[in-house]
Amino acid sequence: MTVTSPQQPAENFTLSYLSPAVDEFIRLREKIGWGQTDREMAKTSLANSLFHVVLRQQDKLIAMGRVVGDGAMFFYIQDVIVDPGYQRQGLGHIIMENIEAYLQKSVKKGSTIGLLAAKGKEAFYRRYGYQDRSGEVLGLGMCKFI
């Protein structure tokens, strides 16, 4: 995987690698239609993440992404979210470029990087080298939602 230095946001946005606050994380997920998230579950999930990248306009969380996993063999890209009012401005690209820069430093030969793309967003992730699982070699991949 070839990644240049991470892209920085435009002047009116700030980028950080700190976890978002639990309540703002929950609100952002709700804004894009992912439903309500249990507060304690969200708190634990954020605390156990390997990497966060957050974009803000002033103090408002407008975009984020994170990496979860065991930090060695398996890494999963989660919660790449851009507030609907800020979409189509390249913020998702900034999030992914920063995630890719983190992964480039963290993964080793034999590591697996996975993600579950939201329906209709598959082409976005293909730009970063992620491939659809056809099922021919590895199976289609599966998940279970509780």
Rank of each mutant, 00 (worst) to 15 (best):
T4D: 13
T4N: 15
T4I: 12
Q7E: 10
S16E: 08
A21V: 07
D23E: 15
F25S: 10
R27T: 15
K31F: 06
G35T: 05
Q36I: 09
D38T: 03
D38V: 01
K43T: 07
K43H: 09
K43I: 02
T44F: 06
S45C: 10
L55T: 00
Q57W: 03
D59N: 13
D59L: 04
L61Y: 00
A63L: 05
R66A: 11
V67F: 04
G71A: 01
F74M: 04
F75L: 04
Q78H: 11
D79E: 11
V82M: 05
P84K: 08
Y86M: 09
Q87E: 15
Q89I: 02
G90K: 00
L91I: 00
H93A: 13
M96W: 07
N98M: 04
N98H: 02
I99L: 13
L103F: 00
L103R: 07
T112A: 08
T112F: 09
I113F: 06
G114E: 11
A118M: 10
G120M: 08
E122S: 04
A123V: 13
R126L: 05
Q131K: 15
D132Q: 11
R133K: 08
R133H: 01
G139A: 02
L140H: 09
L140A: 08
G141L: 03
K144I: 11
I146N: 09
